[in-house]
Write a protein that binds this DNA or RNA. Structure first.
Lengths: 251, 251
DNA sequence: AAGTGGTCTAGACCACCTA
DNA sequence: AGGTGGTCTAGACCACTTG
């Protein structure tokens, strides 16, 4: 009795010390994280959620406000609230100038250079939060804009979670990897953290990017995370210094 | 009659088509912009604002939510809501590693190298939104962390708005400029936009930063804006490429 | 026409800070 | 003790999208 009553009155309770709108936010975020609510899918209406949980509409509204601010959902007036699909299409290119002389945005391309299995070293293991020695899939890739090489990328994935990629025919590789991760492996990227720095071009990087060996290049180390918050991909991208350009707003 | 009635019922009305909470936000933002409410000062309480404007407390609350999200005010439970003072103390250093071998944050220093009057060229005029030829104050400055040069800066200010700086004894120049702008000239910086890129070190830059001439350095072009949205300062800072490090969260 | 999110009201009570 | 912001309720009406 006690249990069902508690569920009727307050079916949230991951941490009852928190305000109810935060409990509801966490509950909805968990549904998104575990795939119960998939990207593009609609949440129940605010009134429906309110009725289900015995909350006032205003409380539900505030919970969804937070999800929207966190970038997990998107409201559309008159239609509903939808789980947001992260769009990383040009996320690395945004660090570099990639417009032609006429100002038009150049079409980005992605070419897979190599694919092989590899055991995780210390760095990759730390970034992917796996044990050193774990079997990984290692990709090398060149990204171009308007035919000019803009990024030389090395990518590490946990082999067990991306098994289909090891066999995928080269013809089926796309210009963009994240849609491929979803299509072939059901792995969704929710967010990523990019760390910018510089490096000296080794012989291979220099050849790929068309710069002098030893020259300074921009290096972007990225860890991409799934909706469950676990690292999915570790990627190190390098691009020519003179194409680098990035703006930040400071408050 | 019509006018006073309208003022009683709806004393906001910068644009009556907008929701009331947005009108109220704009009204409060204007009070901050024109200095009626100074940084550190408290806003009237939410209930007082509601009573003054004939609004429900919830509507006032939403307006202040927006101001808080925009970074203009800061709420403190039990105390009140205060106009936020932007803190740029380490804002440029955050693009560079500046911790010692033990991980301790190194004390930043600022040294004024030169100060002179100059007429605005095309670039400075565009960035500061003044006419070319306008008289400017030009500063050159070196910033150090733990005694190592980290940034060589060139700064342009509209002379008419920063007159006291032209005469200020060198002994009174601080490590940080923005507090000085406020103290000496009453000019407050509200936000800034930094654009990162690279450049080749000319002889002077190379000597200042201790790198080879022709070497790639990181260049940060900043325009700082006042609370009224007008540009206050244009600044170009250069730092050694190998100390560059910056993280961004992507969604 | 029906359903959705968007705006707005008018309260109640709580948690926190200051004095 | 009194005032502040923080949470929550229970509605009303509007604007927009879709069938």
């Amino acid at each position: 009795m006690q249990v069902s009553l508690a569920e009727t009155i307050q079916p949230l309770a991951p941490d009852s010390r928190l305000p109810r709108y935060q409990q509801l936010r966490d509950r909805l975020a968990a549904l998104i994280a575990d795939g119960t609510l998939r990207p593009g899918e609609a949440l129940p209406s605010e009134t429906a959620i309110a009725a289900d949980h015995g909350l006032a509409p205003g409380t539900v509204r505030k919970a969804i406000d937070l999800l929207e601010q966190a970038g997990l959902v998107e409201r559309q007036q008159g239609r509903g609230t939808f789980v947001r699909r992260a769009d990383f299409a040009h996320s690395l290119f945004r660090f570099f100038r990639h417009t032609g002389p006429d100002g038009a945005v150049l079409k980005p391309e992605g070419r897979l250079l190599s694919r092989r299995r590899q055991r995780a070293g210390k760095t990759e293991a730390a970034r992917l939060a796996v044990a050193p020695g774990t079997e990984l899939l290692h990709l090398r890739r060149l990204r171009l804009a308007g035919g000019r090489p803009l990024l030389y990328e090395r990518i590490w994935l946990e082999a067990a979670r991306f098994a289909p990629l090891a066999e995928l025919p080269l013809a089926e590789w796309d210009d963009l990897l994240y849609p491929l991760y979803e299509r072939a492996c059901g792995r969704l990227v929710a967010r990523a953290r990019d760390t910018l720095g510089t490096a000296r071009a080794d012989r291979e990087t220099a050849r790929m990017l068309g710069v002098e060996p030893g020259e300074v290049v921009i290096e972007i180390a990225r860890v991409a995370f799934g909706y469950d918050g676990r690292p999915l991909e570790y990627r190190v991208s390098r691009g020519p210094a003179e194409a680098f350009s990035y703006s930040v707003e400071i408050r």
